[in-house]
Computed example of a mutant assay.
Amino acid sequence: MAARARRRGAGGTGPVGEPASRAPGAITRILAAPGPAAGAAPRGPRPAAACRGPAQRLKSVSHIAQTNIQLYEQLRLSGYDDAAVVAAARAYALAQPLFSARFRGSGRPFLCHLVGTASVLARDGASIEEVTAGLLHAAYDAGLFGYDMHRTVSPRKRAAVREAVGEAGEALVAAYTALPWTGSTLERLAASAARSPEERSVLRLRLANELDDLADGGLRYTGREKASLVDDASHRAKLVTLAQQVDMPHLAADLEAALASHGDRV
């Protein structure tokens, strides 16, 4: 019995010499930070007047689904037909094994982010091809295909995604992956509102991805590389401009609010 306990580690649940659980990324640094001085009372939230900028600005962000069931219900209640709900379920069925062991830098399950991105698109009545592409937008960059663990686009991967979301949906996922998301890209896109329908759809996916990342404050608990784009005020302004050009009023309003809230914290 003692030997078994030693094999499990000091906590009885983790590997030898390791804690039972590990907090990823910035969470580890937060937990490792010095605590309050001995005898000090826990500090509650600051009064609203002491906060920089409008307090609780993110409360203006409308509900964004985080589970597949929430997304299906959102689609149904928003007027999408049964075939659209089935299409979303088919896309989720592929996303589930690809991302079941994947997490965002904050520790948030990747599947929640994929559902959230699709939900943002659905709130503005996006096509079902855009919604299902939202569910798989990171498949080529971060999905764990059992037969190919490289972060690349391959014919076999494309065939799997195409089977799940159709030709149009897969083309959006591939185009999303091919579009570099940098400050120079934002500058180029913001310089002109003229773009093809596919370019507009890909931009919608990119902006929905940004909103879902921002909406719950998760970028505060991830690496600075991920947050660096929206840390820059000029980049935030360009994202707002782009959101106003894609005919998605909920996305535009909520992204502007979320970016402003993020700016208050930078």
Rank of each mutant, 00 (worst) to 15 (best):
G116E: 09
M248N: 03
K157E: 04
E129K: 11
Q96V: 00
G44E: 08
A5E: 13
D141A: 15
D247M: 05
V266M: 15
H137D: 12
R236P: 04
C112A: 15
P24M: 01
H113I: 09
A84F: 04
H235R: 12
G217W: 06
F145R: 02
A101P: 03
E199C: 01
G223W: 10
G217V: 03
L179W: 06
A126Y: 09
T13D: 02
A37S: 15
F110R: 13
L144K: 13
Q56L: 13
Q245S: 11
S119C: 03
I30L: 15
Y176C: 08
G134K: 12
V120W: 07
N209S: 14
A252K: 03
P19L: 15
G166D: 01
G105M: 08
R8T: 02
R8W: 06
Q96E: 08
A252N: 04
T222N: 05
T67D: 08
L135R: 08
L71D: 07
A48W: 15
V161S: 10
A89S: 10
S106E: 06
A93V: 00
G166L: 02
A88Q: 00
R265Q: 07
A83C: 07
R7G: 00
A65M: 09
E163Q: 15
V86K: 11
V240F: 08
L98R: 00
Q56F: 02
R123T: 08
G39P: 12
A23Y: 15
D124Y: 07
I64Q: 06
H150V: 10
V131F: 02
A208G: 07
H150D: 12
F99Y: 03
L77V: 13
L98C: 01
T241N: 01
A193Y: 12
V16Y: 13
P15K: 05
T152A: 01
D148T: 06
G166K: 05
F145M: 00
R76W: 12
R52S: 01
V173H: 13
Q245M: 13
L114T: 09
A191F: 02
R52T: 05
R265D: 00
R76Y: 11
A164P: 00
A2L: 14
A48P: 03
A194P: 00
L259S: 03
T67K: 10
E170S: 15
E18C: 11
P197N: 04
V173W: 03
R200G: 08
I30D: 11
R76C: 06
R102T: 14
G169T: 01
H63C: 06
F145P: 04
M248R: 09
A191Q: 10
A258P: 00
Q66C: 10
P15I: 00
L136Q: 05
A260I: 09
S228F: 02
G39W: 12
Q66W: 06
H250W: 07
T177P: 04
S21R: 13
A48Y: 15
H137C: 15
A84W: 11
Y72G: 06
V120Q: 05
H262F: 02
A253D: 11
